[in-house]
């Protein structure tokens, strides 16, 4: 572990950097440190593979969600219905 930390990142930091890398937002410096860490650390390498797979699945799924505004409209309609019901 110490050797790896000396190389620049401990496993926690490497794992977080790995998630950041999924969004292509790691700096060059971070990227190099991560690559070095993954070269020496098998568990992190495994984790990195899973993380990439997750990115792939998310991309493939083309998920469509509703916005906060739309959710607020749902809540509004539910509240209105609720208050009408209780008046009766």
């Amino acid at each position: 572990m110490n050797l790896k930390s000396l190389l620049g990142l401990n496993c926690d930091e490497a794992a977080t950097a790995c998630s950041k890398a999924q969004y292509k937002e790691t700096s060059l410096r971070e990227k190099l440190k991560l690559r070095l860490h993954l070269f020496f650390c098998k568990p992190c390498k495994e984790y990195s593979k899973k993380n990439q797979k997750l990115s792939l699945l998310i991309k493939k799924a083309k998920i469509q969600t509703c916005s906060e505004v739309e959710k607020e409209a749902y809540r509004q309609r539910m509240n209105n219905a609720g208050s009408h019901a209780s008046k009766r």
Binding site: Q64, T65, C66, K71, A73, Y74, R77, M78
Partner: peptide, 27 residues
């Protein structure tokens, strides 16, 4: 909401219609 919305939009292909259906479902 996200789950129901995603389920619906794939089938009706119209955001407004999907919103209506989801809120009607909650009601």
């Amino acid at each position: 909401a996200d789950y129901l919305f995603n389920y619906t939009i794939v089938r009706v292909n119209d955001r407004e219609v999907a919103n209506d259906i989801v809120s009607e479902t909650f009601l």
